[in-house]
Design a protein around this nucleic acid. Sequence first.
DNA 1: GATGAATGAGTCTTCATTCAT
DNA 2: TATGAATGAAGACTCATTCAT
Lengths: 214, 214, 214, 214
Amino acid sequence: MQSKTRMIGRDGPSFIEVARRAQIVECAIETIASLGYAQASLNQIAERAGISKSVISYHFAGKDELIDQVLEDVSAAGAALMWPRVQAEETSAGMLRAYIQSHMDFMRTHPRHVAAVSEILLHNRTQFDDGQATPLEERLREGQRDGEFRAFSPRVMAWSIRAALDEVARRFVANPGLGLDDCARELTTLFDLATNRSAAAETQVAHDRSRDCP
Amino acid sequence: MQSKTRMIGRDGPSFIEVARRAQIVECAIETIASLGYAQASLNQIAERAGISKSVISYHFAGKDELIDQVLEDVSAAGAALMWPRVQAEETSAGMLRAYIQSHMDFMRTHPRHVAAVSEILLHNRTQFDDGQATPLEERLREGQRDGEFRAFSPRVMAWSIRAALDEVARRFVANPGLGLDDCARELTTLFDLATNRSAAAETQVAHDRSRDCP
Amino acid sequence: MQSKTRMIGRDGPSFIEVARRAQIVECAIETIASLGYAQASLNQIAERAGISKSVISYHFAGKDELIDQVLEDVSAAGAALMWPRVQAEETSAGMLRAYIQSHMDFMRTHPRHVAAVSEILLHNRTQFDDGQATPLEERLREGQRDGEFRAFSPRVMAWSIRAALDEVARRFVANPGLGLDDCARELTTLFDLATNRSAAAETQVAHDRSRDCP
Amino acid sequence: MQSKTRMIGRDGPSFIEVARRAQIVECAIETIASLGYAQASLNQIAERAGISKSVISYHFAGKDELIDQVLEDVSAAGAALMWPRVQAEETSAGMLRAYIQSHMDFMRTHPRHVAAVSEILLHNRTQFDDGQATPLEERLREGQRDGEFRAFSPRVMAWSIRAALDEVARRFVANPGLGLDDCARELTTLFDLATNRSAAAETQVAHDRSRDCP
DNA sequence: GATGAATGAGTCTTCATTCAT
DNA sequence: TATGAATGAAGACTCATTCAT
């Protein structure tokens, strides 16, 4: 709808309005995941939706609003799936595993959603707010305070985790035959080893030994 | 394209041809790193090079060939810096550390090159050759055969390593104040722990214990 | 168009029909005066009216009819205010003064109406009916026949008067602080001098003198 | 030319560049004068020029620059024609007559130019710099200081003069049969009478008389 | 009567590419 | 070799209009 005065009345957006927006958002996701962010023009999106290009302009103020809606919808859905499972864990290591595992599960059920968001975030790196910590980073930091995680930079670790997950997401979209279960197991183990205290200690010993007698 | 016609002459590309192509590639790198892939039009590149836009079309079959050349040149430069240092190591763990470390060193000395390639790969993720193993993956596999690395999927591990390195690269470009030394140390430790055999064993024990008495 | 169909009923347009049309016309005036003709889309007009855009299409055959109605309504209102005062004058000079003065008064009481019409005429200067004389022109001609006005082209004089009034209207809309009383006095004097017989004679003398001994 | 770096070297714009720009500016004038500002799209302009729409984008940074160029070119041409003739006059009244007369002469030789500028100025009334005095206003004020002109608001008078001239310009474009000589004579007389001191005095007398015995 | 929804034509702009010189 | 000039396709966006409900 073009007017921004969108009924201050009681009803809010109509059913069909909601449905259309959802459909367009879905098609945008589909398109971005398939063609990449750069190739995902309104034309392409409209074509996939089987609608005229201007229908998008009717339901969204502009491409930006559409993209924002994609981010919002997918993030909300992802968070709804993931955080309960993360919070249900008692240990920090468990939480990290749950984070990765649920991320992969979400990816399995919504592969193109994850890929699309990944594409969007990668291309809109304006808001690279290096200043602010992500929830994941916070959780890692907490795990360190608890003494469960070894000493590492939570920021770099969070970057690495997200980068690995996003990479898998894109690979999965390009190649749906990819075994997500295997990937999940690999990544949980990888970052388990990378974060837990005892492994670090042991490796430190190994390092020391290797330095002692080269 | 014209260059092919030129190639059939007896002496290959002339000196000036080579120089021009190199100059253009450099300017392309500069432009992409500065403005991002999307804003790096031939116009912008030509402007930075102080040449006419059509010079690019003259020396390259099209924008695609230019971009490919950028990838090729930077990859070659990177490989030339990195692989000697990697090969000089005797242990697989050392090689992995050298891989990460030299990658960061290359990033420090050629930040814009790395940024440009990163941008390009991000936008042209069409050709996801999942079939073929990268050199890094091969090295990881070798480390497993040697018994130095634990059992993991070399492919997923390679993906994770590259993803982490590229992420740091992008962060570094966006924020040159980023401490590359710290990142290098973080990542080498991270993937050291993630790959080495003893850490895995120890962690496995820890896991078992945690399963025994929850 | 639908309204024609409706008209063939026995009682003409219903009360609600008339009211709606009037409301829409008012909002159109408001919008055009505020945003300018170019920015006054049906969307904007409907928004200000608090109605749906298609209501306009329902009550008017198209934007053109709406615009025509605006012109008609404002002209009628203006004429209703002005002509009685003009006709009340006995001399032609008095009539001209009354014309200008009442025009400015109308401008003061209906600034946005005048501005809207001004905008519309500016953008739709297709139908320049140069053939037909305006009422103002007729009055000027009459003043000449009475011997009260000097000899001049009533057409060009009428153009000049209207142009000056419209110019002041636009200035007033752009800058409501403009002193309309001052403008009214200036313009009445200006065109008084420009039309009256005695001033012309005197000036003619001056001209002749200046030609005699340059 | 798209690049803004336009050769800092010695040559400046090439001959063909200058010619093309001039041609496009002429066609823009033609189009605006014929269709009105609102209908003068780049498409229309390009069509009249017999060139592709993007040629305009090549030679001008955007529509704005084209419009600005139109204003600049026409203003320069007009000023070059008018001001020498205006300055050549010794009396203020002579200058005003020369201003109007030369304006009409320019209109005769460049009718569409004048009409186009008039259209542009009317539509871009953003810069309605009511604060700043135009050269014409300054001249009028000077004439008052000299004691040659009666007391009037130079601003309102300048508005009226320009409005009348622009009105005639538009009428002339719409109807080329219009007798410009007659118009020129009419307007010079009109504003002569409206400004000169003696006419005002005489009229004042008439006014007084009419007030005495109405 | 009224309206949300949809649409196609049209706006300006950017860009890679081609061509004659 | 080099380049100024030109072009067509595609980009996002606006808008008056139409239609089913």
